[in-house]
Amino acid sequence: MITVENLKKEYKLVKRDPGLKGAIKSLFNRKYETKHAVKGIDFSIEQGETVGYIGANGAGKSTTIKMLTGILTPTSGKVTVNGLVPYENRQKNAVNIGVVFGQRTQLFWDIPVRESYNLLKHIYEIPEHEYEETIGMFTEVLNLEPLLGIPVRQLSLGQKMRCELAAAFLHRPSVVYLDEPTIGLDIAVKVKIRKFIKEMNQRWGTTVLLTTHDMQDIEEICDRIIIIDGGTILYDGGLDEIKKQFGQKRVIHFELADKEKFVLPASLDGQVELLPNEEETKVSLSFDHETVKSSFVISEMMSMYEIGDLNIADPKIETIVEELYNKQEQGGKHEEILANS
């Protein structure tokens, strides 16, 4: 369905000294700086998969998606989507894909939503009966009815995103790229959107590639995640596997009854890590649950302090990913991280 082989993208940036002098100098003697946004990545995605594509800002996510959609031509490497090379057959490829860019609207700004859909119907040449059926279903699932008569510019962010999603799935594409579809939305809308994506995937077998900073999105929608950092892939595999592989970290949050200066009990020294916390009376401890038992940590804490409340956090994908990023930042190569953990 989607195959990516040794994909690379480099940008040439003009390096320029600041000020007018720099501007004039750069006219005669241009120095280029090459930025490697994507450094040779490989993966392949089967029809019907739901894949979370995650990474920090500037990791290369958007660049990859732009290459998959055909907006951007790679420096080298190969991409095929449904057997087509997107950047060579951009318009042909466009028939089979749907895209949501979280921060930019795909709809027509000034005209009512209903009109926007009508135009999309003609642009994608959707047969009338299929269009009616799809629109009917979307209206119900996403509760669009009250929005259809309103111009896009007057919609709130959440309303806009619901309309946006419907637009991306309207022509029943075989792949949908969702670039941060839940950014800035409230929890109720997020839930609705996740449900919708899941449902479309099940009903039509739509392949979904999702980028997001909200790990809840990933947990609820995706079966598989690809983690990219600094233009290379850190991890590619099932969501359950990553939890098993990296999820030995536990975090316990304690709430102390008294407002006193907290000092880590000597018995826990070297065993657990004190996580930074904003409130004075709250303490969060992180540890490896293979070597340290939760009960041990709790009993040691209770013997030293009067504990008001405590809470053991699940090994969340969020913490796992955070760990991976941190390790990467601390300088190790990603292979080493995978080998060590």
């Binding site: 732009k66 907006i71 318009q91 042909k92 642009i123 994608y124």
Partner: peptide, 22 residues
Amino acid sequence: RPGKLDRLLIRPVNPLFHVVAD
């Protein structure tokens, strides 16, 4: 500037046509 051209490039129509028809 606002990146809206991307929107046209992912549609199965000629981008110039789309800009003009907008």
